[in-house]
């Protein structure tokens, strides 16, 4: 059963990855990219790495791919022109692909780079049946690595402050919604009752 799902996910991942490169419309490319991410997440689930699967969906599909979509739709990039050098760059691309292939083969064939390296896990690995891997990450993230967690929080805060400092411009004369004022309005100040004389209309309403 697992093998069946593996082949489904793997086939769709590879096929949609090919379509990302091959499709003419950039919006379709991004949509195929999303399909590839979701299927890769499925592969992670098969490996019992639910946490990575969820992160892949949340971060890559939820944020990165949507950002791509925004960029593709908002910027007027001439993709037909970008494609022109495809033949020309094929040898370089092929070479990089070949290097990747060799590297993957080296990794898979368990070639130990540094036999003298320490092999001391930070904490004893809990049995895989006893805890889910989300729980296992949570156990160290908020205890042993709480310092790093806090520091990363501060870095993100700086990023937020920086974005606001560098881009926010306070415009004058913009009408803003002030909910407190809206709620505080009473019928007396909001509603005017006028007796409209027949056939004359109201004319200019005084406020």
């Amino acid at each position: 059963m697992t093998a069946f799902f593996f082949y489904i996910f793997a086939t769709i991942t590879v096929a949609s990855a090919v379509m990302v490169v091959a499709s003419r419309n950039p919006v379709q490319s991004v949509l195929f990219l999303i399909l590839a991410f979701v299927n890769a997440a499925g592969l992670f689930v098969l490996l019992h790495a639910e946490f990575l699967a969820m992160i892949l969906v949340v971060v890559y599909v939820g944020a990165v791919a949507v950002l791509f979509l925004f960029v593709v739709m908002m910027l007027d990039v001439d993709f037909a022109e970008l494609r022109q050098g495809f033949q020309q760059y094929l040898p370089v691309g092929g070479l990089i692909g070949l290097i990747f292939l060799v590297e993957i083969l080296l990794v898979v064939s368990t070639w130990a780079v540094s036999p003298e390296a320490l092999r001391v896990p930070i904490a004893a690995n809990p049995p895989a049946e006893a805890v889910t891997n989300t729980e296992a990450i949570g156990r160290v993230l908020y205890t042993r690595y709480s310092y790093f967690f806090q520091a990363a929080g501060l870095i993100l805060l700086v990023a937020m402050i920086g974005a606001i400092v560098l881009t926010l411009r306070e415009r004058v004369g913009v009408r803003r919604q002030d909910i407190a004022r809206q709620v505080a309005r009473t019928p007396e100040e909001a509603v005017q009752l006028h007796k409209v004389p027949s056939r004359q209309g109201l004319g200019e309403v005084t406020r």
């Binding site: 310092y147 520091a151 990363a152 870095i155 700086v158 990023a159 402050i161 920086g162 400092v165 560098l166």
Partner: peptide, 23 residues
């Protein structure tokens, strides 16, 4: 190495913003 990198990023990220503060 992790705390080194995080400290460095916190310092640098704030510095990048401060360099451009006269936007």
């Amino acid at each position: 190495l992790i705390s080194l990198y995080l400290g460095l990023e916190l310092q640098s990220l704030a510095a990048y913003v401060v360099a451009a503060i006269h936007r």
